[in-house]
Computed example of a mutant assay.
Amino acid sequence: MTDSFAEMKRELYELMQRSRRGNFAPPLPEGVTPSEARTIMMVAGLRCEGEDVRPGRVAEMTHTTPSALSQTFKTLEEKGLIERRRASGDYRAVTVSLTEEGERVAEEGRRLRDEHMDAAMAYVGVEEMQHLVRIMRKMTEFYEQDFERAGKSRAEGDDAPCA
């Protein structure tokens, strides 16, 4: 292994650690925490896909434990951003939906996320971002294959960010 390769590997690990510790996420809509925003965005996204939004699915997609998600749902309900209802036909099943105010917060979250990404892309440049996306796709494929080789599902692996 050459010194330059070892240096590049060290720098990559350092940058990965900095990105994990740093707050490189888009700004949040006013009045919500990162966990609440992530949950609202996931509920909105699942609903857009035409799914009945079930707490278990939200927990799975946000890599959150059901008990932690339950607490987040409770807070979002208290803030008037979501509603939980019993699903018809199965009294045990619960569905989650955004209130009108929750929809407004989700829309604001999408706007802030898009502005943030536009600014990042303008700063880095479209060509460089295309390279980054290509490289990240390859790295994701590598890690997915690595999980498969180890007999793990992606859900058992490290936390992944939500869109």
Score class of each variant (00 low, 15 high):
residue 61 M to N: 10
residue 24 F to C: 02
residue 96 V to A: 00
residue 157 G to D: 07
residue 34 P to G: 03
residue 8 M to V: 10
residue 91 Y to T: 12
residue 52 D to T: 15
residue 7 E to N: 09
residue 146 D to K: 15
residue 24 F to Q: 04
residue 68 A to R: 12
residue 88 S to E: 13
residue 85 R to V: 08
residue 43 V to Y: 01
residue 85 R to I: 10
residue 148 E to R: 15
residue 53 V to S: 03
residue 80 G to V: 00
residue 87 A to Q: 07
residue 70 S to M: 13
residue 39 T to Q: 01
residue 69 L to W: 03
residue 163 A to S: 11
residue 69 L to K: 00
residue 10 R to V: 02
residue 128 E to A: 07
residue 149 R to Y: 11
residue 67 S to P: 09
residue 133 V to R: 08
residue 59 A to T: 01
residue 49 E to V: 04
residue 95 T to Y: 03
residue 121 M to T: 08
residue 75 T to I: 09
residue 152 K to W: 10
residue 152 K to C: 13
residue 61 M to P: 02
residue 44 A to K: 10
residue 41 M to I: 04
residue 70 S to L: 11
residue 124 V to F: 06
residue 122 A to I: 01
residue 159 D to R: 14
residue 101 E to N: 06
residue 108 E to T: 05
residue 101 E to T: 02
residue 121 M to A: 15
residue 136 M to N: 11
residue 108 E to K: 15
residue 108 E to C: 07
residue 68 A to C: 08
residue 163 A to C: 11
residue 29 P to E: 05
residue 5 F to G: 14
residue 30 E to I: 09
residue 77 E to Y: 02
residue 78 E to N: 11
residue 143 Y to L: 06
residue 158 D to N: 13
residue 21 R to Q: 08
residue 54 R to E: 12
residue 105 V to L: 04
residue 73 F to K: 05
residue 137 R to E: 07
residue 106 A to K: 00
residue 86 R to C: 13
residue 1 M to N: 11
residue 156 E to D: 05
residue 123 Y to K: 12
residue 98 L to R: 01
residue 9 K to D: 12
residue 138 K to L: 05
residue 102 G to I: 00
residue 11 E to P: 08
residue 3 D to T: 15
residue 14 E to N: 15
residue 153 S to P: 00
residue 90 D to H: 00
residue 136 M to K: 13
residue 16 M to H: 06
residue 155 A to G: 06
residue 106 A to N: 04
residue 136 M to Q: 12
residue 85 R to G: 04
residue 96 V to P: 01
residue 88 S to M: 14
residue 51 E to H: 14
residue 141 E to G: 09
residue 130 Q to H: 14
residue 114 D to Y: 15
residue 121 M to P: 01
residue 58 V to M: 00
residue 99 T to C: 04
residue 131 H to F: 12
residue 153 S to I: 07
residue 150 A to C: 04
residue 144 E to Y: 08
residue 34 P to Q: 04
residue 142 F to I: 02
residue 155 A to H: 13
residue 50 G to Q: 00
residue 112 L to A: 05
residue 119 A to N: 09
residue 50 G to S: 06
residue 127 E to W: 10
residue 55 P to R: 09
residue 42 M to G: 08
residue 43 V to F: 02
residue 62 T to M: 03
residue 44 A to D: 14
residue 20 R to P: 02
residue 27 P to K: 07
residue 52 D to F: 13
residue 58 V to Y: 04
residue 17 Q to S: 11
residue 104 R to L: 08
residue 77 E to C: 05
residue 59 A to V: 03
residue 51 E to Q: 08
residue 74 K to G: 00
residue 83 E to F: 09
residue 6 A to R: 14
residue 118 D to C: 08
residue 81 L to E: 00
